[in-house]
Design a protein around this nucleic acid. Structure first.
Lengths: 339, 339
DNA sequence: TTGTAAGCGTTATCAG
DNA sequence: CTGATAACGCTTACAA
C-alpha cells in the first residue's frame, strides 16, 4: 500500500519548496507565485494525483471548514429540504456539512455532539427544536463555537434563530376552518417540550377563543404518525361529540389522525376536516391530499446557514430572530362542515 | 477568545506527561496506566473540559474514523432509511458518517468526492446507483480506500455490493397483476443508466414474455415524480389501447404515473392498477395506498456498513454480492381488471 | 518571488 | 508504568 502523496512529493517533482506548492495550490496566495512555477506545480500535483490533507491543514489553520448540523430525525421528511438549503449555501463557501442524527435520544445527542466537537466544527446549526436540551447550547457556548437555531420558538441564550411564522400559520388554518363552517375544533398539538408546539398552541388558544368556537388542545407524545394515532384515540374515547375539525401539530400527526379516524370508519374530510403543518414533501400525494400550512423549509435552512456564516466571519453573533412567512395550502383534507 | 484546552493542559494539571494523558484517555491503552494516575487524568480532563482534537489525532494515526456516504438525492425518501442503517452500525464502532449529496449532478459528484478524499475518509459507501460514473470508483481505487456499493446491479470492478432482489421483486409484482387478471401491462422503468433499471427491466421482459401477456417497457428520464408524470403522458398519447396495469421503476415514478392518470380522469386502481418499487416511507399513506415491492432499506444500509468495516479491518476487499430478500406489499393501488 | 523553520495537537516508539 | 522525542502534513511569518 503506497503511502499517500504529500505536498513534499509535489514539491520534489516540481523542483520547488513545499511552501511554494502550498501557496500555488491555495486560491488566497496563488498570486504570490510566478506564473511559470505555478504551472509547474499544478502539473506535478495533477501528475501525482495529489490530494491535500484536510486534517493537516485544519490542524495548522485551526479551522476545519466543517459545519455540524444536528437534527432529531432524518426520517422526518421536513429535514431533507432544510438540509438541502443549508448545504446549498455552505458548500458554495467551501464548507462541508456534517449531519448528525440524534434520534431524539439524549445519549446519542450528547455523543454526536461530542464527536462534532472533537472534529472542531466551525459552527453548529441546531434543529432539534427541543426546549429542554440546554446541553448542546451550553457545550457550544463553552467551546465558543457559533450556533444558529432552527425552528425553535423562544431565543435560547442569545443565539440567532430562524423559523417559520407559527402563529400566523395557525391563524390561517383556523380562519380557513371557520370559513368552512366548523364550530368545534381540536388542536392535536405536539409535545410541550418542542418550542414550535408552544407557539402554535398559544396561537390556537387565542384565535379559537376570539372566534368564540368550541375548542380544546391535546398534546401528542411526539411529532410522529404514531403519536397522532394516539391522539385520535383520545378524541374518539372522549365522551361527548367529536369535533368536526382538527388542527394538527404537524403533517405527521395529521397523518396519524387520519389513519386512526379512517380505521374507525370516519372519513376525512367528509366527517372530519384535518389541517396539517409544514407542507412536508409528498403532502399532496397523501390520502386525502393534505391541507396544510406551507413552511419554506429550504429557505429556512439557507437562511440559517447564512446567519451562521455571518457569525463565523464576524467572530461574534447577535441574537437576531428571522421569521419567514408561511401560507396555507388548501387541498383535500378539509371540507365544509356536514359536507 | 481563550485557546482551546489541549492534552498538554491536562497533563500539567494532572502532573503527568502528555503521553500518559493520551494513554489514559484511549480505551486501547488505558490499561497501561496506573489506576491512581488514571483517575487523576480523568479528573483533570473533566475539570478543564478537554475535548480531544480529532484532526491532530487523525493526522498522527492516519485514520480519520470517518466514512463518506455518497447519495444522489437526500430528498428521495429511500435514502434516509438506508443512511440510518449505515449510521447504526458505523456509529457503534466509533465512526462518523459524512453524508454527501450529489444531486445527481456530475460536477457536484466530483467536488463532494474531492472533499471527502481531502478529509481522508476511511471508506466509502456509494449509493448513486449509476452505471456510468466510474469517476468515484476510479478515484477511490486510486486512493486505495475501501468502497461498498449499494443498489448497483452489476459488480463494478470487484467491490462488494449490496442490494435487494430486483428480479424477484418484479416477478412478485407481475404474478400479482396476472392473478388480478391483467393481460396488458407496461413497465415504466427508470433511466437506463441506473443499474437497478436494467435488472428490473430485464426481469420484466422475461416474466411478461413467459406469461404470454401483451407488454412493453418505457424508460423514464429519472426516478422522480416528474419523470413518472412524463411516462404517463407517453402512454396516454400512444395510439391503441391503454394498458390495464403499470409496473413502475420505483415508488416516485408510480406516484407521477398516478398523478397524471388522475388528471386525465383515469382512476387508480379502478381503471388502471399501479405497482411501485421500494416501499418508500409513507407509501401506505398515499392516495391510493401504494402496492409496492418492499425493499429492506435499513438492512441494506446496515449490511453495506458491515461489509465496509470488514474491508477496512482486513485491509483488502473481496467482491462479494449480498442480495437481500424482498416481498410484495399489496395495498390499494392494484385491483382486479375491469373491477 | 521563493526558501527556511516553527508549530498546530496528537500518538507511537523507545528508554528508563 | 511513565517520560522524552519524533513525526504526521500542512501553513505562515520571516528572511533572503
Amino acid at each position: 500500500m503506497p503511502r499517500r502523496v504529500t505536498i513534499d512529493d509535489v514539491a520534489r517533482l516540481a523542483e520547488v519548496h513545499k511552501a511554494t506548492v502550498s501557496r500555488a495550490l491555495n486560491a488566497q496566495t496563488r498570486d504570490q507565485v510566478n506564473a511559470e512555477t505555478l504551472k509547474r506545480v499544478k502539473r506535478a500535483a495533477r501528475q501525482l494525483g495529489y490530494v491535500p490533507n484536510a486534517m493537516a491543514r485544519g490542524l495548522r489553520t485551526s479551522r476545519s471548514m466543517t459545519i455540524g448540523v444536528i437534527i432529531p430525525d432524518l426520517m422526518n421528511p421536513i429535514f431533507p429540504p432544510i438540509i438541502r438549503g443549508i448545504e446549498h449555501v455552505l458548500q458554495a463557501q467551501g464548507y462541508t456539512v456534517l449531519i448528525a442524527n440524534t434520534d431524539s435520544h439524549d445519549d446519542v445527542e450528547i455523543s454526536v455532539l461530542e464527536s462534532l466537537l472533537q472534529r472542531r466544527v466551525d459552527g453548529f446549526i441546531l434543529a432539534t427544536g427541543r426546549l429542554d436540551d440546554h446541553t448542546v447550547i451550553d457545550e457550544a457556548t463553552a467551546a465558543d463555537v457559533p450556533v444558529v437555531l432552527v425552528n425553535r420558538g423562544a431565543g435560547m441564550g442569545g443565539f440567532p434563530l430562524v423559523s417559520g411564522d407559527n402563529a400566523h400559520g395557525i391563524d390561517l388554518a383556523l380562519a380557513h376552518l371557520l370559513d368552512l363552517g366548523h364550530r368545534h375544533i381540536v388542536h392535536a398539538a405536539g409535545p410541550l417540550n418542542f418550542s414550535t408546539t408552544r407557539s402554535r398552541a398559544e396561537a390556537f388558544e387565542v384565535a379559537a377563543t376570539k372566534a368564540g368556537v368550541e375548542h380544546g388542545t391535546i398534546y401528542a407524545s411526539g411529532l410522529t404518525i404514531e403519536a397522532g394515532f394516539d391522539v385520535a384515540d383520545q378524541i374518539l374515547a372522549g365522551r361527548g361529540r367529536c369535533p368536526t375539525a382538527l388542527v394538527a401539530g404537524n403533517d405527521l400527526v395529521a397523518l396519524g389522525l387520519i389513519r386512526r379516524l379512517r380505521a374507525e370508519g370516519l372519513r376525512c374530510p367528509e366527517d372530519v376536516s384535518v389541517v396539517g403543518f409544514n407542507d412536508m414533501p409528498f403532502a399532496e400525494d397523501f390520502w386525502p391530499p393534505l391541507t396544510t400550512v406551507h413552511m419554506p423549509l429550504r429557505e429556512i435552512g439557507a437562511e440559517a446557514a447564512r446567519l451562521l456564516l455571518r457569525g463565523i466571519d464576524a467572530g461574534e453573533q447577535e441574537g437576531v430572530t428571522v421569521t419567514l412567512p408561511v401560507s396555507l395550502l388548501v387541498r383535500g383534507s378539509t371540507a365544509a362542515v356536514g359536507g
